[in-house]
Design a protein around this nucleic acid. Sequence first.
DNA 1: AGCCAGGCCCAAC
DNA 2: GTTGGGCATGGC
Length: 291
Amino acid sequence: MIYTVRGVKDFSADQTFGCGQCFRWRGQEDGSYIGTAMGRTVRVSFSDGALAIENCDEKDFNIIWKDYFDLGRDYGALKAELSSCGGIMKTAAEYGGGIRILRQDFWETVVSFIISQNSNIPRIRKCIEALCERYGGESGEYGGRPCRGVPGPEVLAPLRAEDLAECRLGYRADYLIKTSRRMLDLGGPGQVAKSLSGSEDPSGQLRQFRGIGPKVADCITLFGLHRLDAFPVDVWMKRVMHRFFGIDEKDVSSMKAYAAGHFGRCGGLAQQYLFYYIRSLEKNGRDDLPG
DNA sequence: AGCCAGGCCCAAC
DNA sequence: GTTGGGCATGGC
């Protein structure tokens, strides 16, 4: 069954799935994407404002995918707000104008971004796939085949690092296991997510988990708790903030202060626009950035 | 071949 | 509170 919504603005599947916020959507020959999230596996296509979701009925759309794609938010207004900053922010917002910040599952973002550290996107994807393949529980089916989700903390907590050797996580395997144990001690991801949602400083709380530092915590806060004002600073963002805003490359607190002052409640979206833009230029082999 | 990757931990300042 | 070395692994 295919469910289609029309009149969707400010959306691009390539940009939304390719901007580095998620790792489990695979592009297909016809331009669609297949992915497993929120306990379902679907195929997503988009053209002329029509978002078509295959293996989805009206009920699933309303309780899962409408929120997942953040369709209730007016990205046009947020873009206008950011574009008014001018300069590279305006350029980046126009370039990546189809990015939406997905409302991903909290635990999936915890696992994903622990794995992401000091790695690169192609390898992150492989690691997460290997983890799901080996330990993931069945999470819907597509084309008659069962599909697997990210394994929960109750699956990972009893393991030893060597049990995860095939997933090639390196030293991150230990982080994943210890964070799983702590997550269970605190009542599980649902309980922790709920508690953090009411917290003043979720990022600070998240840093208590093994393998979660400032940057990973901010990614989880942005992508997993959907705090649009979180502003994760990685090596790419340091380059942008130094090159275009003249901030010292190691002065992360000034970068965050700048983001809070100029991008405010849209800091996380600004970060995604900038991240996507700077990396796209790099991939295209150009070094003649404006500004 | 060597540098780098959506960094974090820990020790030493 | 800040800084630098070490770290598993593989993409390019």
